[in-house]
Design a protein around this nucleic acid. Structure first.
Ligand SMILES: [Mn+2]
Ligand SMILES: [Mn+2]
Ligand SMILES: [Mn+2]
Ligand SMILES: [Mn+2]
Lengths: 220, 220
DNA sequence: AATTATTTTTAGATTAGTCTAAAAATAATT
DNA sequence: AATTATTTTTAGACTAATCTAAAAATAATT
């Protein structure tokens, strides 16, 4: 397993994420969009990755990861999320500021580093955005969750994740004092603009549909 | 100040170290040796770095860093050494294992990351090998030190650094229970092979000339 | 001072990753 | 089924970083 370039790793992760979300193969265009590059460049790289047996590639058919490719991609996700925990828990970064830095840190090549970091952080199972951190064997912890927008009037839930990861969304949540772990109760639902009134930290707050559709809660 | 490539940064650091050690300009060959590359490649890069005003380059004359180039190089040294402290102090790596990893980590681009890391580590002034960590403004702490080989019979010193940074040397020191901070007393000197007998942790030990010439101590 | 040795630069190629424009294949519409 | 639109691939070109081999400049030696 000759070591991969920064770029090859990013392609693998992109393919992993696209397939994960859509549950089917990743198209050239979808990859191009995610990587912010041209379709021509993607085709080029796909042929290279196929040559290294990291993806299953057939002209015009879209691609999937091989077992090996999947392992590498999962390990990248592991590293990314562990570094995000480090940045938030230890260096006290806000959860909106860590993604870009972790995007670089995930490429540092040292198995021992990852395992020691994992120990140092207490083997966390979820990252600062509520996303699961795969273990060394690539297994993701699963937990049932719903979009806040799916809750009915009177139902309660604990915030366990976000759908959107942009800094602007996360910063906005900070403004609302809305962080992982807090309890939310849906008090009212307004048909007009699909906004909702919630009880949060003993205070009533209105959330737009856009917000409630990007927040994950655990019902109960 | 457009951002530099990983490679450009490594060249700047190499030039910095060569000039620091020799107190004069860095020759093409010296750089080539340190970067383990060809002289032709070096010339190529020197012309590029000169174009970015990071080095003073005149054909056949060797190079020095400009003020800007020096700042960047110093900042890289700062990052490298801070990361080494993190790896040893927090992740419990041995001091022989951290250099290669720090060599990658030093390139992570985020000023805020470095400053938060510095705070997290308690603003250390020296790295795990006893080398000074420059502050944000590029100032290095200075402390007087001598090679152990320069001490005379009967003199004492505290180990404060190493001249050689190879893993094999550092691992060997670990074997000898010889780490930064310990006190050494020179008990005897043997002309024959220039080895010395020392008192270390209440035990007498023989050190070869090679070892005593690569250990820094603070006399007294 | 002339010759030889060393260092440095130039010239020309190569590879990874990218681009635009054109060609080919597939999908959607009439 | 034929035409049109979209997606994907190919072709050709560019930049950063590297190489080897040859040329040029500098340093060392006779
Ligand atoms: Mn992220
Ligand atoms: Mn995350
Ligand atoms: Mn080091
Ligand atoms: Mn060091």
């Amino acid at each position: 397993m000759e070591k991969l370039s920064y770029t090859e790793e990013n392609y693998l992760k992109a393919i992993f994420k696209i397939c994960e979300k859509s549950n089917k193969s990743a198209s050239t265009n979808a990859i191009a969009k995610r990587m912010a590059t041209s379709a021509a460049s993607v085709t080029d790289m796909l042929q290279r990755l196929a040559g290294k047996l990291l993806i299953n590639y057939e002209k015009y058919k879209g691609v999937t990861l091989t077992v090996l490719g999947g392992k590498i991609a999962t390990n990248l996700v592991r590293k990314h999320r562990l570094w995000e925990v480090f940045l938030v828990e230890k260096l006290e970064f806000s959860w909106g500021a860590v993604h870009d830095i972790a995007e670089e840190l995930e490429h540092i090549k040292s198995e021992e580093l990852v395992e020691r970091l994992d120990q140092f952080l207490g083997q966390p199972k979820f990252d600062p955005h509520g996303d699961p951190i795969p273990d060394v064997d690539g297994n993701f912890a699963f937990r049932k969750k719903n979009l806040l927008s799916e809750l009915k009037k009177g139902e309660k839930g604990i915030v366990v994740g976000v759908q959107e990861h942009t800094a602007s969304f996360l910063d906005y949540l900070d403004q609302l004092n809305l962080s992982l772990g807090v309890e939310i109760e849906v008090i009212d639902f307004f048909e007009y603009d699909e906004s909702i009134k919630i009880l949060l930290n003993q205070k009533e707050t209105i959330l737009s549909q856009k917000v409630s559709q990007n927040l994950f809660v655990q019902k109960g």
